[in-house]
Nucleic acid binder design. Structure first.
Lengths: 119, 119
DNA sequence: TGTGTATACTTGACTACGCAAGCAACTGTA
DNA sequence: TACAGTTGCTTGCGTAGTCAAGTATACACA
């Protein structure tokens, strides 16, 4: 699935999820550290991930006026567009992966059970 | 958990599982390619993994008399010992991780559901 | 018997992380 | 107001894995 996403849209799954989190955030921006937590990465992992996304023009830096330590990662228009294009096929293949194997009810059970692991 | 295992016994989780698979195999040996499949790695991943385990003396190479292409990975006595010592704490912490969160029944459900993914 | 194809394995180059250390900026406390 | 501790971020280095290509062997078949 990662390979699929990469071939079709030049995004890794983690990159995709980063864009997704940003798209759902206020002002389409998040502090890098919050993005790290959301993705289950360390701060340095995010630095490297965003390096790539910034170079591709999908995300940009934005400073914080109240706290000079923080820099926001903000989704660009190009990033939003890329996300939208990728979402179609990605959601499709994820759906296929799961809907082939599980009923609606089983999916809910699975989600609930796995959710407990991350606490 | 990986960090725990590494600190206490100098093993990664994948390394531990490799030793475990070998310990359960006939003659405590497996073709490298079968080990790869069992671990969900590629052939080159196994080459690298076994590099480390061989250097540590936990696993050794053994040739195959019927097919000169294959080389077996065989558990050494040191490897069996290390596995045994690691098993105690590793199984303990895995048990803690899951038994804190799930009932017996939920564990079975989870195992069955996740099992379907790997097909 | 030679040749094409498949299999087992290794190697080099690369990616995606983590950790430790360091810097700068913020905050709480004496 | 000084300073100790904390937080956000980056950088250098190490690790675990992948893929592509190469080697050696095995096998099938004209």
């Amino acid at each position: 699935m990662d390979a699929e996403l990469r071939a079709a849209h030049g995004l890794t799954v983690v990159g995709y999820e980063a864009l997704l989190l940003l798209s759902e955030a206020d002002e389409r921006a998040l502090r890098r550290i919050d993005l790290a937590r959301g993705l289950g990465l360390t701060a340095s992992g995010v630095t490297r991930l965003l390096d790539g996304l910034e170079r591709a023009g999908l995300v940009e830096k934005r400073t914080c006026s109240e706290d000079a330590r923080v820099t926001y990662a903000a989704l660009t228009d190009a990033g939003a567009e890329r996300l939208q294009r990728a979402t179609c096929s990605h959601v499709g293949s994820a759906r296929a992966l799961f809907e082939d194997r599980y009923s609606e009810e089983e999916l809910e059970t699975l989600a609930e059970l796995l959710g407990r692991l991350r606490q």
